[in-house]
């Protein structure tokens, strides 16, 4: 069969020119990456890839998504993941594979039959190039979602302000997912530190709309059901104006203009309770 002959000739060419081709491939790709990857590492990557491609072709495959190319695909996915993590662009990643076309073109297209074989091989490489882009994008998505989760954790430090008082400074936009995390951490800290007062400071929150007010109210109510009091502080004048202008129901939420004022209030209540306790014992 014609294709089998073609594949065989391709394999012969690849095997015969192995050293020359891989060296040239290396040079092209490393020029492209401008030395941001060590020559040794690149050489190893491309060498392994080259061997895997030869083996897949020997096994009789010319379809990049076929059974024979499983090893090639897993090497490519590995390569793309590394490139994505190291901050290379998707084009730079895809070109690592596509550069092999440039390397083989002069060697294969010496006659009409050779050109036909080259085209088949080029199609295969295009397909593999696409695969790297897919793997690259997937990795970036994983990185992004992992970072989003880290950011969620990072942006909500619950701190103990005083004996019996914990606080959380909120910075940025409040959405449901974040409120959930803040709420959970704040309430758990109340239990862990045996604190009766919580202060949520919203100085760093750009806007307060109905939804944000809802989230804050839920936190206040949940804290109350656990036996703690939750106050919102750091309400900037513009925010107070917005709240009133929009007619947002803030009624059940205890508020203070500043964190300092909220803390003073909380300490006063704690002192009052302690005093009552002492009197109760007499």
């Amino acid at each position: 069969m014609a294709t089998e002959d073609n594949t065989q000739r391709l394999v012969d060419a690849l095997v015969a020119g192995r050293d020359e081709f891989t060296a040239q491939w290396n040079r092209t790709v490393s020029g492209n990456l401008q030395g941001r990857l060590s020559t040794a590492e690149l050489g190893r990557e491309l060498g392994e890839l080259y061997e895997a491609i030869v083996q897949a072709l020997t096994a009789g495959g010319l379809s990049g998504r076929g059974e024979e190319f499983a090893e090639v695909r897993s090497l490519l996915i590995e390569l793309s993941r590394n490139r994505a993590r190291q901050g290379f662009t998707p084009s730079e990643t895809a070109r690592s594979v596509l550069a092999l076309k440039d390397v083989l073109e002069p060697a294969l297209t010496t006659d009409g039959h050779g050109a036909e074989i080259y085209l088949q091989f080029a199609r295969l490489l295009d397909d593999l190039g696409l695969l790297t882009t897919e793997a690259y994008v997937r990795t970036r998505e994983e990185i992004i979602s992992a970072q989003a989760e880290q950011l969620l954790e990072l942006s909500t430090p619950v701190v103990k302000l005083w004996d019996g008082v914990v606080g959380v400074p909120l910075v940025g936009t409040l959405d449901s997912a974040r409120t959930q995390v803040v709420m959970e951490k704040l309430l758990q800290t109340l239990v862990d530190t045996n604190s009766t007062h919580a202060i949520i400071d919203i100085t760093g929150v750009p806007t307060v709309d109905t939804q944000v007010a809802q989230h804050l109210l839920k936190t206040v109510v949940a804290a109350r059901m656990m036996g703690a009091q939750c106050t919102i502080s750091g309400i900037r004048p513009q925010i107070a104006q917005t709240i009133v202008a929009l007619g947002i129901e803030f009624g059940d939420i205890p508020t203070n203009a500043t964190l300092a004022e909220a803390l003073r209030q909380a300490l006063k209540e704690i002192a009052q309770d302690a005093e009552d306790d002492a009197r109760g014992l007499l």
């Binding site: 309430l187 239990v191 656990m226 036996g227």
Partner: peptide, 29 residues
Amino acid sequence: VGMRPAVAMTLVELGLSLKGVRTALNLER
């Protein structure tokens, strides 16, 4: 006394606020 954080968050979402019920963090308090 002693309502767990996850329970409190769920009750709020459910629409219950236990208005008029006094609460405390733990038995001692």
